[in-house]
Structures are given as structure tokens and as C-alpha cells.
Design a protein around this nucleic acid. Structure first.
Lengths: 195, 195
DNA sequence: AACTTGACGCAACTGACCGTTGCATTTACC
DNA sequence: GGTAAATGCAACGGTCAGTTGCGTCAAGTT
């Protein structure tokens, strides 16, 4: 029954948006009396947070194709598809509707931590393979890939095609590797010059 | 008076959030009767859209320091500061609260188009200076810089320090330039190999 | 078997806010 | 001075939020 209410909450969220959530409606969808919902969750926000938390417990499939760029492109494609879907859009909107110190903000933080942790495996494997220099920050790379996709969809609302994703991954990966060489080169040069 | 209501709308938005907007409260803040607000704007969403539109008409100062990286770092810093502020957060939350085809979505699109257009000047100047290869897509570059900042603040809610901004700009700029050389190299090589 | 406990359903209630309407009043423009 | 548009004011019906008291049912306890 708890599951039924949470499912109904997500359904109502997708259909009516964050602002249009009505406890009575959710209860009806779940075949439950509204009183029960109030008794169990108390607040609309707590209910929403619980529903989103249960949803974000889903496993995050991480691409593993033996090549960084391929992995990152696949990841970017999944992110794009996820946040383009009605459910994804609703979830994101719900997250950003809460203030900084609400229950939702806490759930949001957990959500993102889990995603970054999972997808960081792509970078780790790449470092082991020698495709990326050791010492790179996995979260920074994932951010650099996912951020632009995110911004484009939630900002101007334009869609992101596969070519753009490929270019984006190219920019980040070569930027990381070439930048690292550059730094190493600079360090090597300064070692001989300063002492 | 119209201005007073719009100002009051923004103030109420920042204070109470998108969901907590009450027409009567806005009217009171503006020293106006709520009937007038209803007559002029009709819907809460229309009022909010108008207020946000008036706000986004503000000029966007574009850094011009004679160097791409410096310009982009300055821009990134401004973006970070803007969306970290209470007003900025509220505005973004308001934008993402509307569906895809609401009045708000339209305002959002205009908002972003204006920003990308203005900031694109940075890239154009860089191309003229020879710092970036000709033919680069200005919007892609701005997206690549602003996206990660955006994602980090609105996702995990972590703050972005200046070092991270500098690294980010480094990655993108070298990724663009080196990637372009790489492409030119590949093209030059394949020209001789395939025919 | 009788009892206790806890969860849920049901109905009703108060209160807040929404959006509307009819009317008086002001303002501005001709 | 007259007219039309914009605003203020008060009151309204309607919807939903939460709350409360009471009845029901199932599970476990003794």
C-alpha cells in the first residue's frame, strides 16, 4: 500500500506537475483514503521526497564498452534521454522546486551523489587503461559532460543530437589529456629553470 | 504601478518560492488591490511570466579582457554568482516549474537566447584574435562552460570555486583548439590516403 | 476464546485561498 | 464638463488543506 501511494505520487507528479499535486487525488489514485496519507507522511513535501527517494534507488546502468569516448557518449545519451522524458523532467522540476534545506534538497543530494559515484567507474577504468591521465577528478569529467546536456534541455529547451554529444565528449577528453600534458610539460620546464 | 506589481512579484517569489506565490500577498506588497492584478494579468502564471520577462530584459555585461580564457573565466564566475544568489535560484526554479509549452517556457527560451547571443561575442572576438579556430559554434562553447557550473549548483548543491572554473575553461578551450587541429590533421591525412 | 493494539476507512469540520462579480471612485482624455 | 477606462472595495461561491472523532478490521497476546 505504501508502494501504491508512492507510485500514485509519481504518476500525479508527472501528470499535474509539482504545483498541481493534490493529496486527495494521490490517495484516490492509490485506492486509499486521504487520511491514511496524512497520517503516514504528514506533509506533501515529505511524501514527495519519499516518492522521489524510492525512485532514485533504481540501479544506474553504467556503460562499459572498453573505450572512454564510447562510454561517455553512451552515458551522455542516457542522460539526455532520461531528462528529456516526461518522468525525468518532472523529477528534475520537483527537485528544483524545494529550497536549499528542504527534505527534497537532501534527497537531491543523495541522488546526485549516487549517480556521480556510479558513473565515476567509467573514468576509473579509463585511467587504468591509460586513456586518461592518473589523478583526474571523475566527478569533474562527468559534470563537464552532463552539464551542457542538462543546460541545453532545461535552459533554451533545444534538443541535443548525437553529433553534439560526440563533439562534447571529444572536447572534454582531449581537453583533459592535452591539458594534462601541457601541465606536465610546464612542470618539467620549471624544474630545470628555477633552482 | 505595473512596475510595482512586477517588483512585488519577484520579491514574493524570492521569499516564498514558486509554490507559495499568493496573488493577494503580491497585491498587498505593491499597495494595490488584488482585483486589479487579476484584471490585468488574469493568471498567476501570466503575471510570473511577465515579471520574469521584465527582469531578464536587464543588460548582460559581457567580459572583454582581451583573452579568451580570462573572458570565459570571468563569465563563468558571473554565472556562478548569479545562480547562487537567492534571486537567481528563485528565477531558475520558477522557469523549471512550468511545463514545456507554458508562458514561462516561452520566456525561458527568450531569456536563454538573449544570454547566448550576448555572450557569444566572447567567442567571436576570440576567433578574430586567432585564439579559437574559425567555424566554432559559440553557443556550444558557452554551454560547455556554463552547463557544468549549473549542474553542480542545482544538482548536488555543491559550490564551485574559482579553481574549478579555471580548470573547466582550460579543458574546453584546449579541447576545442586541439580537437580542431586533430580534425584538420585527420582530414589532411585522409586526403592523401583514400583517393 | 476473549482481549488489546495498531492501521485504515469514513464523514464532517474549520480555515485559507482562489477567482469572480457588482458597484463606487478616481483618473485621464476629449 | 462629459465620458470611458482603470482602480478600489466588499462580498460571494468553490476548492482544497489538514484535523478530528468514531467505526471497522486484522493480528497478535494471554
Amino acid at each position: 500500500m505504501r508502494a501504491a501511494v508512492l507510485r500514485a505520487t509519481i504518476a500525479a507528479l508527472v501528470e499535474d506537475g509539482v504545483g498541481g499535486l493534490r493529496i486527495e487525488d494521490i490517495a484516490q489514485r492509490a485506492g486509499v483514503n486521504k487520511t491514511s496519507v496524512y497520517r503516514r507522511w504528514g506533509t506533501r513535501e515529505a511524501l514527495l521526497a519519499d516518492a522521489l527517494l524510492s525512485l532514485s534507488a533504481a540501479e544506474v546502468p553504467v556503460p562499459d564498452e572498453g573505450d572512454v569516448r564510447a562510454d561517455l557518449v553512451a552515458l551522455a545519451r542516457r542522460i539526455r534521454d532520461a531528462i528529456s522524458s516526461p518522468v525525468g523532467r518532472s523529477i528534475v522540476a520537483a527537485f528544483s522546486s524545494g529550497g536549499r534545506d528542504s527534505d527534497l534538497a537532501d534527497v537531491s543530494r543523495r541522488f546526485w551523489r549516487a549517480r556521480f559515484e556510479a558513473t565515476g567507474a567509467i573514468v576509473e577504468r579509463a585511467v587504468q587503461r591509460g586513456e586518461l591521465p592518473p589523478g583526474v577528478d571523475a566527478q569533474e569529467i562527468i559534470e563537464s559532460i552532463a552539464g551542457p546536456v542538462w543546460l541545453r534541455i532545461f535552459g533554451p529547451g533545444e534538443d541535443v543530437d548525437d553529433d553534439r554529444l560526440a563533439r562534447l565528449v571529444d572536447i572534454v577528453v582531449t581537453g583533459i589529456t592535452e591539458g594534462a600534458q601541457e601541465v606536465r610539460g610546464r612542470e618539467a620546464g620549471s624544474e630545470g629553470a628555477t633552482p
